[in-house]
Design a binder for these strands. Structure first.
Lengths: 120, 120, 120, 120
DNA sequence: GTGGTCTAGACCACG
DNA sequence: GTGGTCTAGACCACA
């Protein structure tokens, strides 16, 4: 039983793929708050990558407040961020706007896009 | 008169910044179909970057059908793509979904997000 | 009745948190000279941590002369150190200078910093 | 000619020593805004450490806005941070208060401490 | 056993 | 030549 896989052929760095997969699982609710995530070593073995690569991903997830770590015990899923600086939210909205603009340019209608967002 | 600038201090590669700026101007309608874009050399001088960097951006813009090139004449703004393979559209929707999910996870409400999309 | 708590989610090692909490309580005068501190086992139970962790904290507090231990009786709060080797004082001043320099660099004014120190 | 040295015997991680040294030099004004810092490889050679270690330090300095990096060109000293979130300032003041309290406990007088701060 | 630091290398993207 | 990613492995601090 494996949580997810990484695509070695993908141009996207492996550590970023790990980050995104964890974000996805957390956001989807598949990984509950306070639950423990596999140790760096186990995760590395599971994915077939080097522990350093997993560590880099875990560390970034911690910096972004998705994980918290207790040395000697492991890493855990953190509670959803309460108060945000607003800086990251802004960046996310910027990304959203850019993507929607490109979709419209490529012929997608705004109602259709909104319909898709509604489905989420 | 300069179309745009690149931010050297930004982590984003310069060639990607050039691509995004062109996409933005084309999508916004500031660059009309069939109009000629500056030559690689001129653009490089204007932006203060290496011609290789501009060339890489132009080549990618051509691959993505935003530009078309007539050898010996230069590059031109292409007409908006009509029929798409659907592959890129799918990728854009994937990106959209991921961004919206993260916004929701960070406390934004779906109506608020849709409101923002409406404004585009 | 518990003297203090440790924050497991904090990056700071638990044994260091224990040390700092004791220092804080001693410096604030909440723990009087010669008073007995809880045994390692009790403290570990109270905080919900491993006795080894408490032991490490106590040992360091003893080395820094905040505690003294009578074998078979337990650990006690020591009198404030009178004559110091000067080595630790120097280190503390170094830390102070570094912190103040960084505050100034980040835009804080020296008078404002001194004002804050006055409040202590 | 070497900017600084690292102490391999020190318990403090090498990458943190590098960070602190750079902060010190920047705050002292020895490293001017926009000036280029040695490449990761050169710095590693100079200090006798692995490039990865230097990279880790540079990256953190960039995250803390002391450096900015242009891939393919190198790292540069950034302008002093203008608007701060206030979060880091608070942490610095907390550290300051703790250090001053410990100095007082160890027999230093507050006026003497302030005098020392004035000298900075 | 856990994460954190570090080395000695290799290969890639960027300019 | 620059920084970025990754591997294979070692040693240390923490609980």
């Amino acid at each position: 039983m494996q949580m997810f896989n990484v695509d070695f052929k993908n141009r996207k760095p492996i550590y970023e793929q790990i980050i995104e997969n964890f974000k996805r699982l957390i956001i989807a609710g598949d990984l509950k708050e306070e639950s423990r995530v596999p140790s760096i070593r186990d995760m590395a073995k599971e994915l077939g990558v080097n522990p350093n690569t997993v560590q880099k991903a875990y560390r970034e997830l911690e910096e972004q407040s998705y994980f918290y770590t207790i040395i000697g015990q492991g890493s855990f899923i953190a509670a959803p961020p309460k108060s945000d600086t607003g800086k990251e939210i802004g960046a996310l909205y910027d990304s959203l706007v850019g993507t929607v603009r490109e979709l419209i340019f490529r012929g997608e209608s705004k109602p259709r896009i909104i319909e898709r967002v509604e489905m989420i």
